[in-house]
């Protein structure tokens, strides 16, 4: 009885490590299979459509609103110090460095990631993946790789769109509504946002998040217990794990990128 707790703990840790190991092998296998996609570009386009284009609307709407809220909140704080001219800078830096990549990744996990997991899990449950194997078609190449690569491509694009429309949203509220000078909104931004330190690092972040979210989503789908309950649990795990990894990775990346400034 006494050792029960340790046994449970040990088993839980071993299970996690085991899963992580399988996920890593899976990731390498999928990447190894993905060169075969080069002559089959169409498969990739289909998936960029599914994970990118279909996520576009929610990203644009969310980005606009986040930018507008930043405009409001930034203005009410900055105006106390007479620094409302810096509103553009505040909005742009918040979006490009943090909110753009992070919120996009969270929305991506909820919209596209869960759909990927459910789709792959159902294909497994209905023997479609086994069927492909028996037709001498590698499902890692035919089904998984295009989805993984599409996720990795779509994420930075979505994050850039989120930030861009957020800056416009901040402009809408700050300049059109609250009367900040349009010239200083843009010029403060241009003076102080750096292409490498801010924008490029933001793109790097969204690339990393793209890999993490797409990887988790396809692995959970492929590893799902092939029953309706198993698929729903896997979908659930995708959203939880993706969100946590995005936030955790964000902390690590932020301290690496901006820690020394």
């Amino acid at each position: 009885m006494m050792f029960g707790f340790f046994a449970d703990l040990g088993r839980a840790v071993l299970d996690r490590v085991n899963r992580l190991g399988r996920a890593s092998i899976f990731f390498v296998q999928v990447l190894a299979a993905s060169w075969q996609l080069i002559p089959r570009f169409q498969l990739l386009l289909q998936q960029i459509y599914a994970v990118g284009v279909l996520t576009l609307l929610i990203i644009l709407v969310a980005g606009l609103f986040v930018g507008m809220v930043l405009g409001f909140q930034g203005y009410t704080t900055l105006v106390r110090f007479g620094a409302e001219d810096s509103l553009g800078l505040l909005v742009a830096l918040s979006l490009v460095r943090e909110l753009g990549p992070v919120v996009t990744a969270l929305l991506f996990a909820g919209r596209a990631g869960s759909a990927l997991t459910a789709e792959i899990g159902l294909m497994k449950a209905t023997e479609q993946l086994a069927g492909m194997e028996m037709m001498a078609v590698n499902p890692l190449m035919r089904v998984i790789a295009p989805r993984l690569i599409a996720g990795m491509i779509a994420m930075p694009i979505l994050a850039a769109l989120f930030s861009a429309i957020g800056v416009l949203g901040g402009h809408l509220v700050g300049v059109e509504l609250l009367g900040v000078d349009s010239g200083s909104y843009w010029s403060q931004m241009r003076e102080n946002v750096d292409i490498y330190d801010d924008i490029f690092n933001g793109v790097i972040k969204s690339l990393v998040f793209g890999v993490a979210c797409a990887w988790i989503a396809v692995f959970e789908g492929y590893d799902a217990v092939p029953t309706s309950e198993g698929v729903s649990r896997a979908t659930n795990r995708t959203v939880v794990y993706s969100s946590l990894s995005v936030l955790g990775l964000d902390f690590v990346l932020t301290s690496l990128m901006f820690g020394e400034a």
Partner: peptide, 11 residues
């Protein structure tokens, strides 16, 4: 060739 119980058609 293999015929799966559920058909395993690509949906």
């Amino acid at each position: 060739g293999m015929l799966f119980q559920t058909g395993a058609l690509l949906t």
